[in-house]
């Protein structure tokens, strides 16, 4: 009846091996003989550095800004909590004044009018994104085409990325957004409380062969393309005209360029 130590250890070892082997059998069976491939309609399948140029000469009236903002709000199910709850506000693309957009390059002699000048701002899809470094779960990540994308499934709501982003481009869902969405677009998911969100350069539209919604709505005010491709319009503008970027002194290398001189000033 009694077993000696050697037999006991041998049997325990065999049981352990059986257990480990069994888990391999179970996990191995899960993989079906299937493959994955990217969408054939994708607009920029081989892009290395997708970027946007904001031509400020095309943003004159309030409608120019609102049209662009609304095009994003309506397809991404962005809630509107009203003016009284600005701390809960969710922003993907919005307008801010010169003073806050380009803070750092201070010029005391700028007129107040110029300081209040509105600029179109969104996530800069930096080449060195501090939000990606800060994210502990990999929920925000840099795609090979340069877009800083969000995987809402993985976001745990720690908000490290919001502290890391120098552009305030990230918003946190403090409340359930669904009741505050004017009309839910079923083609894009809504978010739940406890999730951070931001502009993703419309990755879902790019995969379907469409330009970002704001680019379409801007009537030429926003130009989108691959900076690595020297035939693209963005490259032509950025390489030949005077453009500025936000907070370059921080070294994040933003991919949103502001064409401030207008078309005529090369």
């Amino acid at each position: 009846m009694s077993i000696n130590r050697r037999t006991f250890l041998r049997r325990a070892g065999m049981l352990t091996a059986l257990g480990l082997g069994g888990s391999f059998v179970i996990n191995g069976a899960v993989e079906a003989a299937a493959e994955y491939e990217p969408s054939k309609k994708g607009l920029f399948p081989n892009a290395k550095h997708l970027a946007m140029v904001v031509d400020m000469s095309k943003f004159k009236t309030e409608d120019d800004f609102n049209r662009v903002i609304q095009s994003c709000v309506s397809i991404h199910n962005i809630p509107d909590f009203g003016k009284d709850d600005l701390k809960d506000e969710i922003k993907w693309i919005w307008s801010d004044d010169y003073e806050h957009t380009f803070s750092g390059g201070d010029n005391d002699y700028l007129t107040d009018d110029f300081k209040k000048l509105p600029f179109m701002v969104a996530c800069n899809h930096c080449e060195n994104p501090p939000c990606v470094k800060a994210c502990p779960t990999g929920a925000t990540f840099k795609r090979p085409d340069g877009i800083v994308d969000m995987d809402f499934h993985r976001c745990i709501g720690c908000r490290f990325c919001m502290g890391a982003c120098p552009f305030g481009a990230r918003s946190f869902n403090y409340r359930d957004p669904r009741p505050f969405i004017k009309k839910i677009d079923p083609d894009y998911p809504t978010r739940t409380p406890g999730v951070v969100e931001k502009c993703i350069f419309c990755v879902e539209r790019l995969a379907d062969g469409l330009m970002p919604a704001c680019v379409e709505a801007s009537k030429g005010g926003l130009i989108f393309g691959d900076l690595d491709d020297h035939t693209s319009e963005v490259w032509k503008i950025v390489s030949s005209k005077f453009t500025i970027r936000r907070k370059t002194e921080l070294g994040t290398q933003p991919s949103v360029y502001y064409l401030v001189g207008g078309e005529s000033h090369a």
Binding site: A34, E35, Y36, S39, D149, H153
Partner: peptide
């Protein structure tokens, strides 16, 4: 979401 592979071939 992560790899941009939006087509599944069974």
């Amino acid at each position: 979401v992560r790899d941009g592979q939006s087509i599944y071939i069974n």
